[in-house]
Design a binder for these strands. Structure first.
Lengths: 242, 242
DNA sequence: CATTGCGCTTGATGCATATCAATGTTGTTG
DNA sequence: CAACAACATTGATATGCATCAAGCGCAATG
């Protein structure tokens, strides 16, 4: 049940689809999908586009941005390894509601809408997988939204910093309490509903407090204990997401 | 396919469940559910509660509030006639993530978790209904979140006002351009991530501009044209939700 | 009737963040 | 290397909104 589909270079794990794919499905999935690499700055799809299929992120970081007609925009959430994008448009038979911006070099597995629809018909249980996925995305977005509404910029920034740190912590645990931001300042700003200038000033304040140092994109936690203490709440919510 | 289940006073329309209920299901649904009336100020369920079932709103207005450990909270969205609450907790087998606050007298139809699970097993297509529901909720929340992040308080307030107006517009179209707010100032504030004081001041500004008059909870649009013009964008997004 | 409580408003003030403009820094390309 | 573009920082200023405190209107209650 946790075998890996390999065909044309694709490597969607069965587990990524809600544990509902049997071997046959897995084979069909592999044949229905193909992989592509996106460079930073590219868009996987754009808000308003008609939907051509779903995208499963194998590696890298992708941001989902929502824009309005006035030119304002915000990045609603980050997607990474194991996340699936565009399924709402396929299943809901609508246009994409967000733009998927590639933030770091990403391997992405694509499955055509028609083929996915066929798979869904063949195996209705696959719907369960997407249902669970939708529920997780809903919870993530709700949590984000609530945080946005109730907490100040510094608290939101600290939380984001912590989440980004946790991501790499699992991968590289050699150098302690140091990591590189995978995104630019302006992306951080977009994620927090702020301006890059404000991010700069927040960083200044944090450095003055001796909480953390920034060298370009490198982040050095000078006092991890105080850092963790300052975040307090919100951690269990973040870790319970996955 | 659009018959109404009636048993023990419940009246869940089949259409509310994604058009996937046949007559048999409908009968089972009716037998599995019962109706209750909630008064303003009551909570249907609370954040952190274990889930006992799902709630289908027949009439009235319910707000979903998310709180954090610091005592801060925000109202994430409003639910009304036809909406279903608590399904995430049942399907995801988790605790409720939000508190469901009754804002106006509401008739609510309850279905026990165990029975719903049985129904889901008997008719896997029912999952499709919940999937679609989850996608709509996700879109609503995303749109809210983006608006929260990019637009100022006045714009958000105008948009909310318009949405509330649209709700009653369909029901009572006799008196033009007048309606009563179904919620208190503090609820409006919670929905907009603001304080009641700020709402008061926003109202002042709007009255000075001659856009709209407020008498207690009564809202009078003195110049509907200018009002609609001021909202501009965001309307098609709101109307496309349903 | 007086009282209490609650929702709402108003005013004074302070802080947080946006905005605009200028400069520095980095990375890229010919 | 020089030149350029994108990103990042810094400073000055303005604004939006929160906070705190007080007063008002109204309904419920003894």
């Amino acid at each position: 049940m946790s075998q890996v589909c390999r065909s044309r270079g694709c490597s969607c794990k069965a587990t990524e689809w809600g544990h509902v794919l049997d071997e046959m499905d897995c084979e069909l999935f592999a044949r229905a999908s193909h992989e592509r690499v996106y460079e930073p700055g590219m868009n996987i799809f754009m808000q308003g586009d008609n939907c051509s299929g779903v995208y499963c992120i194998q590696s890298g970081l992708v941001g989902l941005r929502r824009s309005d007609d006035n030119g304002n925009s915000a990045m609603l959430r980050l997607s990474q390894n194991g996340d699936v994008l565009g399924y709402r448009a396929v299943i809901g038979k609508r246009q994409h509601r967000n733009t998927a911006e590639v933030l770091t070099r990403s391997r992405v597995c694509f499955i055509e809408a028609a083929r996915l629809t066929m798979l869904l018909q063949r195996n209705p249980n696959l719907k369960e997988g997407f249902l669970q996925r939708a529920l997780v995305d809903l919870t993530t977005t709700e949590t984000n939204c609530a945080e946005q509404m109730t907490r100040g910029l510094q608290a939101r920034f600290l939380h984001l910093l912590f989440r980004l740190y946790q991501n790499v912590e699992a991968q590289q645990d050699d150098r302690e309490h140091v990591f590189d931001l995978p995104v630019q300042r302006k992306d951080i700003a977009a994620l927090l509903g702020a301006t890059p200038e404000s991010i700069s000033r927040i960083i200044n304040r944090l450095e003055e407090q001796g909480l953390v140092r920034f060298v370009g994109r490198r982040v050095i936690f000078s006092n991890m204990g105080r850092f963790r203490a300052k975040i307090q709440i919100g951690i269990e919510a973040a870790t319970a997401e996955a």
